[in-house]
Write a protein that binds this DNA or RNA. Structure first.
Lengths: 150, 150
DNA sequence: GCTGAAACGGCTCTGTT
DNA sequence: AACAGAGCCGTTTCAGC
């Protein structure tokens, strides 16, 4: 849990992670060193896990996006799924979930043929029993990096 | 579409967006000004849309995550869904999708009660017919901001 | 076109109060 | 938390490939 000042700093960094500490300080009413120390502390405690670039998938040539529900063989550990999926460059996010499927993976591919190829490779993993995928038609909203509001 | 050098720069920024241009230059074999010019160009062309912070939802107090499939009334436009969902701080991503549901929203909430409350409010939106939600058990993988591999 | 080198201004960062 | 210093970085300008 963060206090108000920390939240505003995180919010400022969420909008532009390369903004200077002096800028952020002016925004939240602190000096630059004070902001830096708070950011350092947020990184140390794990609230901030890093800084990343926001890219336009289409501009990078990744025009096809989809969610792949993965049904695993019984007694498959989350670690096995993780190790299996992290080898795919095309898988940008994955979680174990409640419901019928065991896990959901978010996949970016250059086109439908590429998407299909990835799908087939995932379905061929030894821990995967079957998959069911949903294609993204148009993205409506994207916020933050690991997806948390602040 | 990017050439090899641009891709490696984007990759370096994806790992740490606050890395210095000199550092990235050393990594890809370019001088700092050359890297800056390429990053500027990537921003100008829209391949890079910004820089953001990677936060740990749990550390910020958002412990409950889920995907909400939204079934809309007929003749609901994507714009209507977008305008309806963007008012929710808890919705961090949303897309229209193929399959039975019309859209999927990724939701972060502080706890299950909070999640349920958000779910009820979304289900009460005039354009929503019904919802079906899946809870995230444990996140396995997260890369990039808007989710593209590079 | 692209690059690398140099120089200036601003920022990061540490230590101190 | 603010202040002050040294050092580093972002940024521009310039010339060369």
């Amino acid at each position: 849990m963060l206090n108000d000042l920390d939240e505003r700093i995180v919010h400022a960094l969420a909008e532009d992670a390369r903004r200077s500490y002096a800028d952020i300080g002016q925004l939240v009413g602190l000096s630059a060193p004070a902001v830096k120390r708070r950011v350092d502390r947020l990184r140390a405690t794990g609230a901030i896990t890093g800084f990343t670039v926001r890219v336009d998938p289409a501009a990078l040539g990744w025009e096809t996006e989809g969610f792949v529900e993965i049904y695993c063989r019984s007694n498959t550990s989350p670690e096995t799924i993780q190790r299996g999926l992290e080898r795919y460059q095309e898988v940008v996010a994955a979680s174990t979930v409640t419901g019928d499927a065991d896990a959901v993976a978010q996949v970016f591919a250059s086109d439908m043929r590429h998407f299909e190829r990835v799908l087939e490779r995932i379905a061929g993993e030894p821990f995967v029993e079957r998959t069911k995928s949903v294609l993204v038609l148009s993205p409506l909203l994207r916020r933050f990096s690991s997806g948390s509001p602040a």
